[in-house]
Simulated scan of single mutants.
Amino acid sequence: MLLATLRLEHGALSLEETFERIPHLEVEAERIAAHSTEWTMPCMWATRAEQQRITEVFKEDPSVDDIVDATAFDDECFYQVEWSDDVETRIDAYLDTGGSILDAEATADGWQVRIRFGARDQFDTFRTVLTDWGYEFALLGLTEPNEPRHLGGQLTDAQREALTAANSYGYYEVPRAISTRELADELEMSHQNLSKLLRRATGRLIDETLTAAADTESE
């Protein structure tokens, strides 16, 4: 198994026009699916811009076919979208190489994606697809875990610390013993940053347990 982290130009995925018009925007895809275009990256968290402006630009971006849901919170906005046929075609081609998109986030510099491949030849095929279509990309990291189900190695130090603190302060108790904003104050970080760390950390744990187990069972 290979875990590859790449930076892709916006045109290789989506939202190219959006970032041309709102270059300071930051987008994080929340829901990632391994083998289905319909459920790949439809849910996103957007920050550093007003919801009205983001919604306006999303509606005019040719990569977005429809906005299914839009909800504003204190310092971030949640969107569920339907992608255009062009975006679905690109994602289909990437998934056809055998790769599983684990997470993705975008800034003005492009999309940073983490993809799991079952074998080296799948990764090579993925790079060939990008090259043949003329998309620029940069390989930021390529690892071949000796223990693919060893979860701790897949979390960053900041993510691990955020999860540990959240559990220690009773964030996951029912009812919660502490709110996200209160926990952020305890950790001396912004509510937005803590929320992002917890989402990413939880997503990675799910990827390395449920998704990995499902992939193994299907082989």
Score class of each variant (00 low, 15 high):
residue 179 S to M: 15
residue 149 R to G: 04
residue 147 E to G: 03
residue 12 A to N: 15
residue 136 E to M: 09
residue 34 A to Y: 09
residue 56 E to G: 06
residue 2 L to A: 02
residue 197 L to F: 03
residue 200 R to A: 15
residue 132 D to G: 01
residue 78 F to C: 12
residue 18 T to H: 01
residue 166 A to I: 05
residue 76 E to M: 11
residue 202 T to L: 11
residue 39 W to S: 08
residue 217 E to F: 05
residue 142 L to M: 05
residue 123 F to H: 06
residue 178 I to T: 02
residue 83 W to K: 01
residue 197 L to N: 08
residue 14 S to F: 04
residue 22 I to P: 06
residue 183 L to A: 01
residue 190 S to W: 06
residue 147 E to V: 13
residue 86 D to T: 06
residue 70 A to C: 09
residue 145 P to H: 01
residue 102 L to M: 00
residue 101 I to E: 11
residue 31 R to A: 08
residue 217 E to N: 02
residue 33 A to D: 15
residue 192 Q to F: 03
residue 141 G to W: 01
residue 3 L to W: 04
residue 33 A to T: 11
residue 66 D to K: 11
residue 1 M to Y: 07
residue 4 A to M: 14
residue 86 D to I: 04
residue 180 T to K: 15
residue 121 D to V: 13
residue 183 L to E: 07
residue 144 E to C: 12
residue 48 R to D: 09
residue 171 Y to N: 10
residue 128 T to D: 04
residue 187 L to G: 00
residue 100 S to Y: 00
residue 82 E to S: 05
residue 5 T to L: 05
residue 90 R to K: 14
residue 71 T to A: 07
residue 213 A to C: 04
residue 212 A to K: 05
residue 98 G to E: 03
residue 125 T to W: 05
residue 136 E to H: 09
residue 23 P to N: 07
residue 214 A to Q: 12
residue 191 H to M: 13
residue 91 I to F: 02
residue 80 Q to M: 13
residue 188 E to V: 13
residue 152 G to D: 09
residue 59 K to E: 13
residue 36 S to H: 11
residue 27 V to C: 02
residue 16 E to G: 12
residue 81 V to Q: 02
residue 188 E to Q: 10
residue 200 R to G: 15
residue 196 K to Q: 14
residue 109 D to T: 07
residue 114 R to N: 05
residue 202 T to F: 12
residue 87 V to M: 00
residue 128 T to I: 08
residue 215 D to N: 10
residue 64 V to D: 00
residue 27 V to I: 08
residue 14 S to Y: 05
residue 214 A to G: 05
residue 81 V to A: 04
